[in-house]
């Protein structure tokens, strides 16, 4: 029973971090129709910025906020000064299909190299702001700590804020309209380019938050977020790539599947589990389990 409770709590925590990453990928996919592989680089770069701020200011919370802000700024800058020129420049030929994706891969490499120049390849640590010792239940320590709880709370608040933004504000309406049909959105006076940049900024902020919540339980190094990118992608595919709710739900499915397999079958099966789920979803329902594609015509 204790094992079960622990597995559920761990699933929720890891699932919520995957959810931030999948949300970031979905936000960019919705606005730009590109899987932003550079997201791993952006997230790790903003986490390094957060790390620097923590070293200078001594406060995790200042670092967290700075990382989120930096993530948003970097995301917006990448869209405005990198992706937009690429879309403007490459308009003909079969290369159109792959150029944006290839560009994000190149960007990922550049960002990770720059991190290597600046901070080296050594492993850094970010101390968690609250205890990482597991809670005690019935006299035994479980693998769920106050820090895990904090992660859960932070992600829940973020998701609530995002939902409010998307469902209750005009800006959210513009974001949804541009994702749904850029042409019609443009006709009704929405500045689609700006809205797209906003999507990238939101994604960058989510990535920064993901990094700051993920790294205290592990280490900070240039490739720290690669694995999270993969899990975020799988979660987004489970959710159908297009829906924010799907991204979160997909992340939870993945979190539960991975943690239950590792705690009940074998701890070696993290990647096989994730990969098999991905293949199964692609074989059986490539549009995603939580996709609402039926009502749409794209």
């Amino acid at each position: 029973m204790l094992k079960f409770i622990t597995a559920v709590l761990t699933s929720l925590t890891t699932g919520s971090i995957y959810a931030l990453m999948s949300t970031a990928l979905v936000l960019v996919w919705r606005s730009t129709r590109v899987i932003n592989f550079a997201q791993a680089g952006q997230a790790v770069l903003t986490t390094y910025i957060g790390y620097e701020v923590i070293v200078r200011s001594g406060s995790y919370w200042v670092g967290l906020i700075m990382a989120i802000v930096a993530g948003a700024v970097i995301g917006a800058a990448i869209d405005r000064f990198f992706m937009r020129p690429i879309f403007k420049r490459i308009t003909t030929g079969p290369i159109v299909m792959i150029a944006p994706v290839v560009a994000t891969l190149g960007l990922l490499g550049i960002v990770q190299a720059i991190i290597g120049f600046k901070w080296g390849l050594t492993y850094q640590t970010i101390a968690a702001p609250v205890s990482t010792d597991g809670y005690r239940i019935f006299g035994s320590v479980i693998a769920f700590s106050p820090f895990n709880l904090m992660v859960l709370v932070c992600v829940t608040i973020t998701m609530l804020l995002l939902t409010l933004l998307f469902q209750k504000t005009n800006l959210g309406l513009a974001l949804r309209a541009s994702a749904h049909s850029p042409e019609i959105a443009k006709l009704s006076g929405i500045k689609v380019d700006g809205i797209r940049t906003l999507g990238w900024a939101l994604a960058g902020a989510a990535g920064g938050l993901a990094g700051m919540l993920f790294v205290p339980s592990t280490y900070l190094y240039p490739n720290a977020m690669d694995v999270l990118l993969v899990f975020g992608f799988i979660a987004a595919v489970i959710g159908g790539l297009d829906s924010l709710f799907g991204a979160v739900a997909g992340a939870m499915v993945l979190g539960f599947a991975i943690n239950f397999t590792t705690s009940y079958v074998s701890s070696r099966l993290v990647f096989p589990t994730a990969f098999i789920i991905l293949i199964l979803v692609l074989l059986i329902k490539p549009a995603g389990i939580f996709s609402n594609k039926k009502g749409r015509r794209d």
Binding site: I35, F37, L229, V230, F233, I234, V237, L278, I279, L282
Partner: peptide
């Protein structure tokens, strides 16, 4: 899908 799956 293919790009992401092969990345995974």
């Amino acid at each position: 899908y293919l790009a992401g799956t092969t990345l995974a």
